[in-house]
Design a protein around this nucleic acid. Structure first.
Length: 652
DNA sequence: GGACAGGGC
């Protein structure tokens, strides 16, 4: 795979080196360098090496963070090659499940989340003399927390002992230089071809129709080059794929025209299908790649000269009203639209077709809000508490999250038992939850399972809840897939269904696992990830001294453990068949993919369940609860008396 | 009656 900043060999030209004296000078003399490096500037490979060669890592190492694992891995490999050393010696990388560093490692490429985890054990990050936050413009939650942490760490260490470099692809340096006192900004040029941007003259009724029409228009009227179409999700892409193929087949024959090859691209696509987008178009053919925002940053599709931008994106956002994360289709930001258009100019001058008017573009948000402003903050707040930050509302964020969102997280952590009434980290629940690499609600389920004697099952359930969805529904084989999935279905809900899938998966001999997944319409990649997470969680679990035990065939303790973590996601059935979330009063429906969604139907022969807990909400045509487990409503006041005391007292 | 944006520990 090609990374976001995957600099083509030809473009490894040396704009960074031409500025090297100035860069090194700034890092030596000021506490923080804010470095704007355009696409193709080579900053990621060259800046850490420059600083190492200038002796700035003396007595320690250089950390260079990336938002994505694949970037950390591939860049480390390339830099090690360029420096003529073995990966893991002087240059290494460290990402989840894969640490390729050694005692001699001086340049360590790592994910931002990994550095944040390291900070929990060493808040001043003493082993590093230089920390580089790369791709800072992406504003991941981990990068945002690290910005505040590094500012504090630099102040807590002797002057000049920790040097910071914040590298960003955008020109908005003022905010960062104002944030890091005494910092200086520098700029290094990259290489990007011009892209001509076109808008529709009038608003489109359907961006899917418009995307198909535009792609065909490009195909019939424009010169050679592949087309990259940005859409919102798997379903939409599959529908588009069929329509586009049909309409291309019914074009009037023209011997001069290239043949058309339509390719889907989204994260859940099987790896072998994903690899097809890296194969250049065959002679005499043109590729049209239908992609989600995976093609904005994570995957660079070669050969693209034309971009079609629907202007929409599916995004996760925290809804304070619903008290949960919510996945929905929303308009892109201007920065995102520019990023999409830029994908047409990687190999030569390109054209971008925006399926909205110029006036509509002007009304879009200038940039996507940093994730930390629109996400569930309970993990962040817990981590800050574990780092010794007592006043989380007063923490020096580059962009402070709304106070009510922070307060809600503090309240949830208090209800989970992770914080004391004074707001300090509670032992052992808070300290343990901070160490477990899962959402605090899930961590609480694990701790409860140790008490209730069902931790073997809970570890599997939480590992499954932490991976991508495993059931696949190919449109042409829906019934076959549904029948295959039905083998795992549990009347008690999706967590137990997931447990059954996981147990059967790990029981397969490794060699047969892939075929078993294929036949069962299961996503092998998701399951492999669940297996890795399971192993990691089990390790943490034992390190924390928690008890491993199995509840066998009696799922009651497991469902009770789920209640003890997910109680804020408890909901009760209403006369109309919807479920009312007890904590917020919101009505939600069970997701059609849920094992419980069919219960209560006239033909199901199974009564609808009275009360549930759910993992998350998804907002499409309605608000749906996903990952749902049936519970006994009486467990709530028994198992979580503090949270449900009022409801119980009121007779609820 | 409807489904699984993308990352990360």
């Amino acid at each position: 795979m090609v990374t976001a900043n995957g600099t083509a060999e030809a473009r490894k030209a040396l704009p960074v080196y031409s500025a090297r004296h100035r860069l090194v000078e700034v890092v030596k003399t000021s506490p923080c360098l804010v470095l704007v490096g355009e696409t193709g500037s080579g900053k990621t490979t060259q800046v850490p090496r420059l600083l190492l060669e200038a002796g700035l890592a003396a007595g320690g190492a250089i950390a260079c963070t990336q938002p994505r694992r694949i970037a950390a891995v591939t860049v480390a490999q390339r830099v090690a090659n360029e420096m003529g050393c073995k990966l893991g010696s002087q240059v290494g990388y460290c990402v989840r499940f894969d640490d390729r560093t050694g005692p001699d490692t001086r340049i360590k490429y790592m994910t931002d989340g990994m550095l944040l985890r390291e900070a929990l054990l060493d808040p001043l990050l003493q082993r590093y003399k230089v920390v580089i936050l790369d791709e800072a413009h992406e504003r991941t939650v981990a990068t945002d927390v690290l910005l505040g942490l590094l500012k504090a760490a630099a102040a807590g260490r002797p002057e000049g002992d920790l040097r910071l470099v914040v590298m960003s692809a955008t020109l908005d340096t003022q905010k960062l230089t104002a944030y890091f006192q005494g910092s200086q900004a520098a700029y290094i040029a990259g290489r990007q071809y011009p892209v001509q941007v076109m808008y529709t003259p009038a608003p489109e009724e359907s961006y899917v129709d418009a995307a198909i029409t535009t792609a065909l228009q490009i195909h019939c009227e424009e010169g050679p080059g592949d087309v990259l179409v940005f859409l919102t999700g798997q379903d939409e892409i599959e529908a588009c794929e069929r329509l586009l193929t049909d309409r291309a087949a019914s074009l009037p024959p023209d011997p001069a025209r290239l043949s058309l090859c339509v390719l889907p691209l989204y994260a859940a696509l099987p790896p072998e299908a994903q690899l097809r987008v890296f194969e250049r178009a065959a002679p005499g053919s043109r590729r049209v790649v239908l992609a989600t925002n995976i093609a904005e940053t994570s995957v660079t599709v070669p050969g693209v000269r034309f971009v079609v931008d629907s202007g929409m994106v599916k995004a996760r956002a925290y809804s304070p009203r619903l008290g949960a994360d919510c996945l929905q289709v929303v308009p892109v930001s201007q920065a995102q639209a520019r990023q999409r258009s830029g994908r047409a100019g990687r190999e030569g001058p390109g054209k971008a077709f925006r399926l909205y008017t110029e006036a509509a573009f002007a009304k879009l948000a200038p940039s996507t809000a940093p994730e930390i402003l629109r996400t569930n903050l309970s993990s962040v707040v817990l981590q800050l508490k574990a780092l010794g930050v007592r006043d989380v509302l007063g923490f020096d964020f580059l962009d402070p999250p709304p106070a009510p969102a922070l307060v809600r997280s503090l309240e949830l952590l208090l209800a989970l038992g992770a914080l004391t009434r004074e707001g300090d980290l509670a032992h052992p629940i808070g300290t343990s939850l901070a160490r477990l690499p899962v959402d605090p609600m899930f961590g609480r389920v694990l701790m409860a399972s140790a008490e209730l004697g069902c931790s073997e099952e809970a570890l599997a359930v939480i590992a499954m809840a932490s991976t991508d969805p495993v059931f696949q529904f190919p449109r042409e084989k829906r019934e076959e897939a549904a029948a295959a999935h039905a083998r795992f279905a549990s009347r008690e809900g999706d967590h137990l269904t997931a447990l059954a899938v996981f147990q059967r998966f790990v029981a397969q001999p490794r060699k047969q696992a892939a075929a078993w997944c294929r036949e069962g319409f299961l996503n092998a990649r998701s399951l492999a990830k669940a297996r890795d997470i399971h192993a990691q969680l089990r390790g943490h679990f034992q390190a924390l001294g928690l008890r491993l035990a199995s509840c066998g065939d009696d799922a009651t303790p497991l469902r009770q453990a789920l209640v003890m973590g997910l109680f804020s996601h408890a909901a009760r059935r209403q006369p109309g068949g919807t479920y009312r979330v007890l904590a917020t009063g919101q009505d939600v429906a069970l997701h059609p993919s849920s094992a419980l969604a069919r219960a209560g139907g006239a033909r199901s022969g199974v009564p609808a369940v009275d009360a549930v807990v759910f993992g998350e909400l998804v907002r499409t045509t309605r608000t749906y609860a996903r990952d749902v487990t049936a519970i006994d409503i009486n467990w709530l006041p028994q198992l979580v008396p503090n949270f449900f005391a009022r409801a119980a007292a009121a007779g609820g």
